[in-house]
Amino acid sequence: MYAFDYHRPASLAEVARLLASREDAKLLAGGQTLLPTLRQRLAQPTDLVDLAQVDELRGLRAVDDGLLVGAMTTHHTVSASPVARRVIPALAELAGGIGDPQVRNRGTLGGSIANNDPAADYPAALLALGATVRTNKRAIRADAFFTGLFETALDPGELVTAVQFTRPDRARYLKLRSQASRYATAGVFVATFGTAVRVAVTGAGACVFRWTDAERALAADFRPDVIDGLTLDPGDLNGDIHASAEYRAHLVKVLVRRAVNQC
């Protein structure tokens, strides 16, 4: 690992000051992606700014029509939270299926969505639930937040402070795990709000996306077989040693049908 300076600020204002004054400072949340990356010398930040002491980034609570979850909330906390389980059970279940228990004890919501790994789980939840990402500067709708492969709408010096989720009427997240990495070979999050249906797909493309054809068909008639005639273009999907693009296109359909069935 290359050398860096370490900071443990206690407030958002101090974090912002550090990010602005250091040459190439990076935020450290749960470290479950960043530290393995640094160990392999795939990045060389001058400074790490540890968010662990920043109170403003903590907390998980029910709000009027959903949940407000602080950026530093661990996957374990979300999965075990009685409030999360009551308000949006599919979200708690998703968090409980990330990686393994040790990763869930450290990894955070903010770190996961800021990283925007194409196979990560949380991005699918944010997109399907129409969540709002709160930062130290503004509020960003999930539809505008995930912009590409490991890319988000965050500006330099901007950090995620919390995510606001709206409670759906029905929701379900299903993924096929890669046996080696535990990430999603493909994962789908299906949510309904009144007559509207949202279907988010992760693991299959370069970035999480909504399958709008399926959404329209399901909004007209919320039954698994209404998507039978639809196809995703494998040309837009990932193919790798774990699964071909054609297989992923098929898998997404199977998962959506199952998710609808279990909603």
């Binding site: 370490y6 443990r8 450290l28 470290g31 479950q32 530290l35 393995p36 160990r39 392999q40 790490l48 540890d50 662990a52 374990h76 393994d100 228990p101 040790q102 990763v103 004890n105 450290r106 990495s181």
Partner: peptide
């Protein structure tokens, strides 16, 4: 491992199991 996937380094930090290869020593202050 180098990738925090194998679990050989699991210890308890404040009573919960974590991978000690994915935590900085300074984070354990």
């Amino acid at each position: 491992c180098d990738t925090s996937q194998c679990g050989a380094c699991v210890i308890h930090l404040n009573g919960r199991s974590v991978k000690s290869c994915a935590v900085l020593a300074v984070q354990a202050e």
